[in-house]
Amino acid sequence: MSSRRTKLPAGWEVGDANDDYEYVPLRLPPDVTRVTASMRLAIQAEFGGWELSRVRLYNDGSRRVLLKRRKTATPATEPAF
């Protein structure tokens, strides 16, 4: 994964090194509507194999999203947001 990875919110620990999943945290800014966020995440699920693990909505309207997918033998690519 690239340097775009950010620190996970408190309580979002994602298992140990033997886990079968890889995770990527994303931050969606407040100007991204719920419908747009839903469509972006659906596209990542369809073409990138990612699934939604957690979402946290903040008072300012921003969202922190945690995506996961099963680890594969091929190198991982991050969702393009």
Rank of each mutant, 00 (worst) to 15 (best):
I43Q: 02
A17V: 09
A37S: 08
L67N: 02
L41D: 01
Q44V: 07
V35F: 06
T33F: 07
E51M: 08
L28H: 01
A73E: 11
P9D: 12
G49N: 02
V35P: 00
L41Y: 08
L41R: 08
Y21V: 01
W50H: 02
V24K: 01
E78C: 10
V32K: 01
R4H: 13
R54K: 15
N18W: 09
S3Y: 10
P75H: 06
Y21C: 04
R4P: 01
P75M: 04
P79C: 09
K7H: 13
D60M: 10
S53K: 07
D20Y: 05
P29H: 09
L67S: 02
K71L: 13
K7Y: 08
Y21A: 02
E13I: 09
N59Y: 11
R27V: 15
R63W: 11
S53N: 04
A45K: 04
N59L: 13
R63N: 03
A45V: 01
P25F: 07
T36Q: 08
K71T: 11
P25W: 06
T74W: 06
V55I: 15
W12K: 08
G48W: 03
E46W: 05
A37G: 09
L8I: 10
S3I: 06
M39P: 00
W12C: 02
R54V: 04
N18L: 13
P75W: 05
A73G: 14
F47T: 07
A76P: 00
A42Q: 05
R4D: 12
V35N: 02
L57W: 02
L57G: 04
T6E: 04
L8R: 13
P30V: 06
M39C: 02
T74Q: 14
N59D: 14
D31H: 14
V32M: 12
L28W: 10
R63D: 02
E22Q: 14
V14H: 10
E51D: 08
F47C: 01
M1S: 13
R27E: 12
M39T: 12
Y21F: 15
A76Q: 09
A10S: 09
V32H: 00
G11D: 06
E22M: 08
V14C: 06
A76R: 15
E46D: 04
P30K: 11
L57D: 09
A37I: 05
T36D: 12
W12A: 12
V24P: 00
P75F: 05
P30W: 08
L26H: 03
A42T: 14
V14Y: 10
M1C: 05
N18M: 07
S53V: 04
A10W: 03
Y21H: 11
L8G: 03
D60G: 11
A42P: 00
V32C: 11
K7N: 11
S62I: 01
V24R: 01
N18P: 00
A17L: 05
V14W: 04
A42H: 07
I43F: 09
R4C: 12
A76M: 14
T36E: 10
T77N: 04
P79V: 15
R27M: 09
L66M: 15
W50P: 00
E46F: 08
Y58N: 09
R63C: 06
